[in-house]
Amino acid sequence: MMKYNRFKAEQEVLEAKLPSNIYRFMDMNTSRPYLVMAARTNRGNVYTLRIELDMFPDSIPQVFVNKMLYDCNNNPLDTPSSTMHTLNSKNGCTQICHYGSSSWTNRVSLYKVYIKCRLWLEMYEAHLSSGKPIDYYLKHQN
């Protein structure tokens, strides 16, 4: 669970980098806090991301797109896939594999997580039009 000074530091970075109406911290005083963020891709599509904060920043936060996404062959992205950088879905929502455990440290900001997920969304859309898997564009970090 985030300490107050960490929460403040995260808020400051987000305030400085993003418009305030695209993110909101939710249920912060409960055991299941999360952050909801909107992400607009270069093609103009808007996705909602849910970043779960119960183990953040000690562990990599789970990030879900607020719906099930489908690959170019219309298969749901609901299972762990190395080529598509996804993990097990939950409640019908695709989970993005945005960080490798061996590169995770507790200094990584929510802003950086957000940027990496935005990047994933760009590559996802590139995949939809080219048919090439996401790892064709995104290198693995382990």
């Binding site: 000074n5 960490r6 507790n106 200094r107 900001s109 802003y111």
Partner: peptide, 17 residues
């Protein structure tokens, strides 16, 4: 440091991104 810093925490905001 994210744990022991007396001052503000310096977060990794991914400048390279």
């Amino acid at each position: 440091c994210a744990i022991c810093s007396d001052d503000e925490i310096l977060l990794d905001i991914g400048d390279n991104l």
